[in-house]
Nucleic acid binder design. Structure first.
Length: 477
DNA sequence: ATGTGC
């Protein structure tokens, strides 16, 4: 509910200092009155709690897809001064570098047929679902390289082409990775899973570009109307999950050790510049690199299938961009006219750097970075561009997706997976999933409409629409 | 999200 929040504009709301005790800064949420009806009190409280943590700068921020999460809300951004601020695993989440990438093909919708066959082939090619393993179990030394080098490791091993790397945020590799802080247990979980899709909201979709809203940006990003594309949404699997679990323990101890007062145990944190904070950051970066290698390997599998079955040249399937939804990064931002080094936590939020940012590909410098916002199963996904407004208002951030409305358990009670699969088929969307249970949990109705969420970030100027993508085939874990 | 709930 929006009650108790101060209205700044039709799409921006303030969570005043004092909403919970000890807030150092206010909160800001980008949200319409309509979507505000589903705003959870718990999520607002979590956003306010983040504002109590040491070193927070400017605002604790909520995107229109905000919902309740572990400690920090999902759809939240918190930036902390590197000198006196904190880093928190709860500000990143369990699925470190959960992210999404978009790849185009030269195929056009009108000339394309055989979606069922393609999805069935991909479903048997890309390992999918909880506990599934990749065709290859990597050695300890290979895993070490994966965690250090990320997407570039995969390309070097033949799972892609050199241009792929520069089309990833961070070039698909956080150089701060320190693998010595990744436990044996995390490595054991990670070794058989690189090149697997995972479960839940993770997916592999075949889509087409249904609408182009910004011709200039679409041209720069390399996407045309009616083009067949594929989108991959997944993360760091069991490795990132284990890294989060392991470091929550050490960070909880550090919270006590450094005398940091937190309003919720799930906000455990340590100074950015502390051994415990640096250890978590290094292990998180290693997990992020693993996730980039993972998405790169899946990209390769899909390209090989399309090359073989549709006669498309592998090199004609270009990576538009790869963004991360769950990460903490050290970035320089201008705050009240002066440059500051910040530890920016984006949890269920996407970087949306604007024109001229040195971090984005040079050939896109005049446009802004590509921003990819996936919809829920069977609904529109969007390609947008980053903006200067985002740099000024949200530390260069925007939303990450539709945002869940109902819990997995309630979704299972109210929806039949088989019925949803048939409904989608009637609408021309062919779904393969590891179980009907997953389809019920991921029913489009239990998510906010992606179009409404994207409308708000567009109206707020946090990222501007470039293209709308519609699914024709979906693989769900 | 996750070898799905301590």
């Amino acid at each position: 509910m929006l009650e108790g929040l101060n209205k700044i504009s039709d799409i921006e709301w303030e969570v005043r200092k004092g909403y919970v005790d000890d807030m150092a800064v206010p909160g800001r949420i980008f949200l319409s009155e309509g979507l505000g009806e589903n705003l959870e009190d718990g999520a607002v409280k979590q956003l306010a709690n983040v504002a109590t943590l040491p070193g927070i700068v400017k605002y604790s921020l909520g995107m229109p897809d905000i919902h309740w999460g572990y400690g920090f809300p999902i759809g939240g951004v918190g930036a902390f001064d590197v000198e006196n601020g904190i880093i928190s695993p709860g500000g990143v989440g369990f699925d470190i570098n959960c992210g999404v990438r978009l790849i185009t093909t030269p195929l056009k919708k009108d000339e394309f047929s055989g979606i069922k066959r393609l999805i069935n082939t991909l479903f048997s090619t890309v390992p999918t679902g909880v506990g599934n393993v990749a065709p290859k179990k990597f050695s300890d030394s290979e895993l070490e390289d994966i965690m250090r080098e990320g997407a570039s490791w995969a390309v070097k091993e033949g799972y892609g082409m050199p241009d792929d790397v520069k089309s990833c945020e961070e070039s698909g590799m956080m150089k701060e990775a320190s693998t010595e802080h990744v436990s044996t247990k995390a490595r054991q979980r990670g070794r058989p899973q690189c090149g697997t899709l995972g479960s839940g909201n993770h997916f592999l979709e075949v889509q087409y570009a249904a609408e182009i809203m910004d011709d200039e940006a679409a041209k720069a990003f390399g996407i045309e109307k009616d083009q067949i594309c594929f989108m991959i949404h997944c993360g760091s699997r069991g490795l990132g999950h284990q890294v989060c679990t392991d470091h929550l323990g050490t960070i909880e101890n550090a919270t006590k050790k450094y005398g940091i007062k937190i309003p919720d145990r799930q906000l455990a944190c340590a100074p950015v510049k502390s051994p415990e904070g640096e250890a978590y950051f290094g292990a998180m970066a290693a997990s992020a690199n693993y996730a980039w290698a993972n998405r790169q390997m899946i990209t390769h599998m899909v390209r090989e299938v399309i090359e073989r079955d549709f006669g498309v040249d592998y090199n004609e399937m270009k990576l538009v961009y790869d963004v991360t939804h769950n990460v903490a990064k050290i970035e320089t931002h201008v705050v009240d006219g002066k440059k500051m080094e910040l530890c920016v936590h984006r949890k269920g939020a996407t970087r949306a750097f604007g024109p001229g940012s040195p971090e984005i590909p040079k050939d896109l410098s005049a446009i802004g970075q590509p921003v990819i916002i996936p919809g829920s199963m069977g609904t529109s996904s969007y390609l947008l561009k980053g903006t200067q407004t985002a740099m000024e208002k949200t530390f260069g951030s925007t939303c990450h997706g539709a945002g869940r409305l109902a819990s997995r358990s309630s979704a299972k009670k109210s929806h039949s997976g088989a019925d949803i699969r048939q409904d989608l088929l009637d609408r021309g969307i062919f779904v393969r999933a590891t179980s009907n249970k997953v389809i019920a949990e991921e029913a489009p109705e239990v998510y906010k409409p992606s179009s409404e969420v994207v409308d708000i970030v567009h109206r707020a100027g946090l990222s501007m629409k470039v293209a709308r993508l519609e699914p024709i085939g979906v693989i769900k874990g």
